[in-house]
Every structure is written in C-alpha cells, then in structure tokens.
Computed example of a mutant assay.
Amino acid sequence: MDWYPHITVATIIEDRGRFLLVEEMAGGQAVFNQPAGHLEADESLLDAALRETLEETGWEVELTGVTGIYLYTAPSNGVTYQRICFCARPLRHLPDSPLDHGIIGPHWMTRDEILQQRSRWRSELLLRCIDDYLSGEHFPLSLVKA
C-alpha cells in the first residue's frame, strides 16, 4: 500500500487581537478551523492559501509570512496531513462571495473565545498554529519555493 501525506495550507489572519476562523461541517458536526484546504494540481502553496481563504471566508488577504510546517495524523481517520501555515493581514471582505460547500461562515474570535470552543475545534492544530504565531513564529515567504 502506498503512503503519502496530504498537502494542505492554512492561513492565520489576525486583526486587533481577533483571528478569522471558519465554521464548517466535518463529520456531521459544526467545527472551527483556520481557513484551510488541500493544494490543487498546478497551484503554488501561496496561491492555495489565498484561494482557500477567499473560498471559505469571503476575505481577500495579503500573505505576510510562514508560521510553520506541521505534520499531523488525524485520529479520526489515520490520514497524515502536511500543513503549511501562513500568516496574513486582511485586505477586503467580499460579503457576496460564494463560500465553499460545507462552510457555515467566517467568525472573528479572540484567543480566549477560541479556547472556550475547544470541543468544536477541527483539530489541535487550530490553537497550536495561533500560539506559534503569537510567539513570533513568522518566517519570510521566501522560505517557500515554487
């Protein structure tokens, strides 16, 4: 059996102490996550992060750095994901932009509000990426090569 990690991107968007999260349906439950998704064929990692953020939140953002590269095996299905997490600043909200199937909507939340929703996190990576961001883990975008 061939094994390979699923390549995903995620984006941390922070504005005045609040983080842009996505409420989405996963496994029959409404959960919270960063805007995130799978890399598509012939797409750069940076383009994937911008696309997923817009498709899941209706926000255009400017990527400002890389927060980290994470390897995560989901306990629910045993699938291993390699997540490249970017940080970004919000540019413009497009409220009429259609959101992906399964997306309930975007939410701006503080870290404390996110902690209060722990039972609804898509995965532990949600807080880990935010905490890495808050601790100053910001690497230049030039780290990512096409």
Rank of each mutant, 00 (worst) to 15 (best):
E55W: 08
F139I: 01
E137D: 08
L21N: 03
E52L: 12
G17M: 07
G58F: 02
L126R: 06
Y72R: 02
Q116N: 12
E23K: 10
D47G: 14
P90R: 14
H101F: 07
T57L: 07
V79N: 06
Q117K: 11
D112M: 04
E137I: 00
V66S: 04
P140K: 06
D132H: 13
R111K: 12
D42H: 15
G37R: 08
L45N: 03
L143Q: 09
R18N: 09
Y70S: 00
M109W: 08
L141A: 07
L143Y: 13
V61N: 11
I12P: 01
L20S: 08
G136H: 03
L50T: 14
L63S: 13
R18M: 06
L54S: 13
D132T: 05
G65W: 06
L94M: 11
F32P: 00
A10Q: 09
H6D: 07
I7R: 08
I13K: 04
C85M: 15
W3R: 10
E56G: 11
R92N: 13
R120D: 08
L39R: 13
H6R: 13
G78M: 02
D2I: 14
R92L: 06
T8N: 02
T80D: 00
T110R: 02
H101S: 15
L20Y: 07
G68H: 10
V79P: 00
C87A: 15
T80V: 10
C85T: 15
L126H: 04
L46H: 15
H107G: 05
I84R: 14
Y81W: 03
E113T: 09
F86D: 02
I12Q: 08
I7N: 03
R83F: 04
S76A: 15
R122K: 14
H101Y: 09
P106E: 05
E40S: 11
S119C: 05
F139M: 09
T11C: 05
E56D: 05
L99M: 05
H6N: 11
E60Y: 06
E40T: 10
E56R: 12
E52G: 01
V79I: 11
P75M: 06
D100C: 06
A30W: 11
H138A: 07
D96T: 12
V22M: 03
G58N: 04
C129K: 15
G105E: 06
A10S: 14
R118M: 06
F139D: 05
S135P: 01
E43F: 01
P5Q: 05
L20V: 07
A49G: 12
M25C: 05
E60A: 09
Y70L: 00
G105A: 06
L91W: 10
S142C: 01
G27W: 03
H138N: 07
L71K: 03
S97Q: 14
T8S: 10
L20P: 07
H38V: 01
D42C: 11
L126F: 01
P5H: 02
H107Q: 12
G78A: 13
P35A: 15
A146Q: 13
D112R: 12
W3Y: 11
L94T: 08
G58P: 02
P5F: 08
R51T: 07
